[in-house]
C-alpha cells in the first residue's frame, strides 16, 4: 500500500475515535438551552476532520480514479471517453451541472444513470453486478460509489449550475417538486413533512429545508457524497434518498430510476450557487 494511503488510514483510525467521542458528548449535553453550544462543538469537530488526509472518503476517490481508467467489458474499454455533459472525458464541472439532458439518449440523466449508460454503450459491460453492488457494505465495495466520489470531487470549489432549459429538464424539475410534496404510505409522509421548514429537527438531528432555494439546500447538496462515520462507508445522495424512503416506510426506490433523478433535479436546483466540497464527512 502506498505510504500516503497507509497514513490516511491510520490518521483516520485515531480521528474516528475522537469524532465518535466528540459527537457522543455533544449530543449527551444537548438540550434546548445549550443547543447552540452543541451545534458549535459539532461544527468545530467537523472543521477539525475536514482534512483530505483524515477523510476515508478519499480512498473511494482514489478507487474511482482507477475504475474510470480500467479497461473492462466486452469491448475492453475504459470510461475515459464517457461524456458526462461537458464533452467526452471532461470531468471538471460535470457534477456541478448534473442531472441534465443528453442528446444521444434524449433523456435527463443523473450521474449514476449516465455512468451506467456509458458502461453499457462504451464498455459493453454487463452492469448487473455493478448494480448489485450499488451500495457498499461490510466486505462489499461499490464501483458506483467510488466513481461518483471521484467525479464529484472533480467539481470541488465549483458551484451548482444545473441547466433547467430543455423541456425534459423542465419536466424533471416539475415532477421532482411534485414528488417532494407527495404524501403516501403508512406514515402519510412526504419529503416536505421533514424538509419544508427552517430549524426543525428529528430527535437532535437538524433537518435541511428544501422547500426553497438557499443555504440549507446548498450546504446539504454541496457536501454529498460524504463519508458516513455511523455506517463506515462513503454514501451518495442516491443512497440518502433511498434511506429517506426507508424511514418514510415506503418501498425502496429502484436504483438510478427516473423518480430519484427528478427529486435530485429539484434538490440541485434549490442548491443552485452552492459550493461543492466533497467527499465530506458526516455523522
Amino acid at each position: 500500500m502506498p505510504v500516503d494511503k497507509w497514513q490516511r488510514q491510520n490518521n483516520w483510525l485515531g480521528l474516528a475515535t475522537a469524532v465518535v467521542l466528540a459527537l457522543c458528548s455533544a449530543s449527551a449535553m444537548a438540550q434546548p438551552a445549550v443547543d447552540d453550544v452543541s451545534e458549535k462543538e459539532i461544527e468545530r469537530y467537523r472543521a477539525m476532520i475536514n482534512d483530505p488526509m483524515a477523510n476515508p472518503g478519499y480512498l473511494n476517490v482514489d478507487r474511482g480514479e482507477q475504475l474510470w481508467a480500467l479497461k473492462r467489458g466486452a469491448k475492453n474499454a475504459s470510461l475515459e471517453t464517457c461524456d458526462l455533459g461537458e464533452g467526452p472525458g471532461k470531468l471538471e464541472g460535470a457534477f456541478a451541472r448534473l442531472p441534465r439532458h443528453f442528446k444521444d439518449t434524449d433523456k435527463v440523466m443523473d450521474l449514476e444513470q449516465r455512468l451506467l449508460h456509458c458502461m453499457t454503450a462504451i464498455q459493453e459491460l454487463d452492469t448487473k453486478d455493478v448494480i448489485a453492488r450499488r451500495f457498499s457494505g461490510p466486505g462489499r465495495m461499490s464501483d458506483m460509489e467510488d466513481l461518483v466520489a471521484f467525479i464529484a470531487n472533480k467539481s470541488n470549489g465549483l458551484k451548482f449550475a444545473m441547466p433547467v432549459e430543455h423541456p425534459k429538464e423542465k419536466e424533471m424539475y416539475a415532477v421532482g417538486e411534485a414528488m417532494f410534496y407527495r404524501r403516501s404510505a403508512i406514515m402519510d409522509f412526504s419529503c416536505a413533512t421533514c424538509h419544508a421548514e427552517e430549524g426543525k429537527r428529528i430527535r437532535l438531528q437538524g433537518l435541511p429545508n428544501f422547500s426553497k432555494p438557499g443555504k440549507p439546500a446548498q450546504e446539504t447538496m454541496g457536501s454529498w457524497p460524504t463519508y458516513r462515520v455511523s455506517q463506515s462507508q462513503l454514501r451518495t445522495m442516491q443512497h440518502r434518498l433511498w434511506d429517506c424512503y426507508r424511514q418514510m416506510r415506503m418501498p425502496a426506490p429502484d436504483y438510478a430510476s427516473d423518480g430519484v433523478t427528478a427529486l435530485t433535479v429539484f434538490m440541485v436546483k434549490q442548491a443552485e450557487g452552492g459550493e461543492i466540497t466533497v467527499p465530506s464527512i458526516k455523522r
Binding site: A174, V175, A178, P251, D258, G259
Partner: peptide
C-alpha cells in the same frame, strides 16, 4: 405539472 405525468414517474421508480 399534470398528475398523470407524476404518476408515470412514480410507477417507474417503484417498478
Amino acid at each position: 405539472i399534470d398528475p398523470v405525468i407524476v404518476d408515470r414517474y412514480v410507477a417507474a421508480t417503484w417498478k
